[in-house]
Design a binder for these strands. Structure first.
Ligand SMILES: [Mn+2]
Ligand SMILES: [Mn+2]
Ligand SMILES: [Mn+2]
Ligand SMILES: [Mn+2]
Lengths: 219, 219
DNA sequence: AAATAAGTTTAGACTTATCTTAATTTGCAA
DNA sequence: TTGCAAATTAAGATAAGTCTAAACTTATTT
């Protein structure tokens, strides 16, 4: 089986594989908080066990086997986060560290029973999708921020408009992919949206802006 | 903090400390499935960290600190077992291995929330008492086997009669302290009890026998 | 008291997993 | 084509846990 550290490396590679580009050693060393040399060691090991495709100096990508493994770890992490929030009444910002431990518990049966117990959730408390037992990601419901109900929470998953002016404006507001947003209010007059971003900053954006932000609702 | 292995050693010492006698190296090596030499190494380490009282060649006992630590691990183990059986619908004979992993998860808050979520149970699915957050063992409810309801499950915690004849008879039946018993039926005519022991053997014992066996009901 | 057996400890070393520093090599962009 | 950033290797350190073999202690017999 995989050690906890191996699982963490594979998970890191998975998360760094946003587009289908190869993942670089330095990128991994950064998220794993270690040196490039250590990463090279581990890449060799993971390659020998055929969890990754590895060509020296060219970065890595997960094999089918590696991706399956990564998705299982992600699945466990997110299911445990749901458990902690839904059943044990943790806040969504308190659960990550504990889930980092729980995700390594080995028992297929346990995780299937947990999944059922939680009602087979499709996303975790942060709005991230939960892969099913086969490692398939659910298709995310996606709506425009302008369509979200008042008090609705969601996670920003993309922008419809890509002009620098728009993106720079979002930057200034502190809104980016992955941001958690909550609609605090909607102005009747012009459909401007009062938002809370990442549970911190409150701001108002115009309807024009809101209808260019794609979000995935969090139940 | 303690490593998982250190926690397991301390727990083993705790379980071996039935009376207040000292625990011998060989006894530990047996339950830990390792050699006496390895145990000696570890005892030195645990002694240096003052989890145990250790005099060479004289066996060990837990210090106050060590006992507290042991009870926390036992508490976690048993609470997780309750969770697995009560919430995830595992059978009581399927939960031990998983609890062996879960008992090492580090988070005070988690275990307190879990305890509340489970309704602050005082015994685990095997009838073993669950220490509270302070490490105090609950006083077990205890009744005579003769008083247990039909379909009631319990754990044997002692005998009232201590004659060799009685104890040898119990031996032959396979009933000892720690045995799980379930009352399958009670004969109206003479109050004989039909029992299932350790989820396996079914047998009939007289009322005279049943009223000399102390048990602790499992809810 | 010596001898013996049983139990325990020490010495020394091994394994596995992971990390580090300090070269060295490679790929690629200017 | 050269210079540099990125990546790899070499060599070794550390930590945790384990083992075998030899030495030692304690208890029990002669
Ligand atoms: Mn998380
Ligand atoms: Mn999450
Ligand atoms: Mn158990
Ligand atoms: Mn138990």
């Amino acid at each position: 089986m995989l050690t906890n550290t191996e699982e963490n490396y594979i998970k890191a590679i998975y998360h760094l594989s946003v587009d289908n580009k190869t993942v670089r050693t330095n990128a991994i060393s950064e998220v794993m908080n270690t040196t490039a040399a250590s990463v090279s060691d581990m890449l060799k090991k993971l390659s020998d066990k055929s969890y990754i495709h590895y060509e020296k100096y060219q970065g890595v990508s997960l094999t089918k086997k590696g991706k399956t493994e990564a998705l299982q770890v992600v699945r466990k992490h997110r299911l445990w986060e749901v458990f902690l929030v839904e059943k044990l009444r943790f806040n969504w910002d308190e659960v990550h560290e504990i889930a980092e431990q729980l995700e390594h518990i080995q028992s297929k049966l346990l995780i299937e029973r947990l999944d059922d117990f939680l009602g087979n959730p499709t996303s975790d408390p942060h709005g991230d999708p939960i892969p099913n037992a086969k490692g398939e990601m659910p298709v995310l419901r996606q709506v425009l921020l302008s369509e979200l109900d008042v008090n609705g929470k969601a996670k920003v998953i993309g922008m419809k408009e890509h002009s620098p002016a728009f993106l720079q404006y979002l930057d200034k507001l502190g809104i980016s992919i992955g941001s958690a947003v909550k609609v605090m209010d909607r102005v009747l007059f012009d459909a401007s949206v009062e938002l809370k971003v990442n549970d911190k900053k409150t701001m108002v954006v115009s309807h024009e802006v809101a209808k260019n932000i794609l979000v995935s609702p969090i139940d």
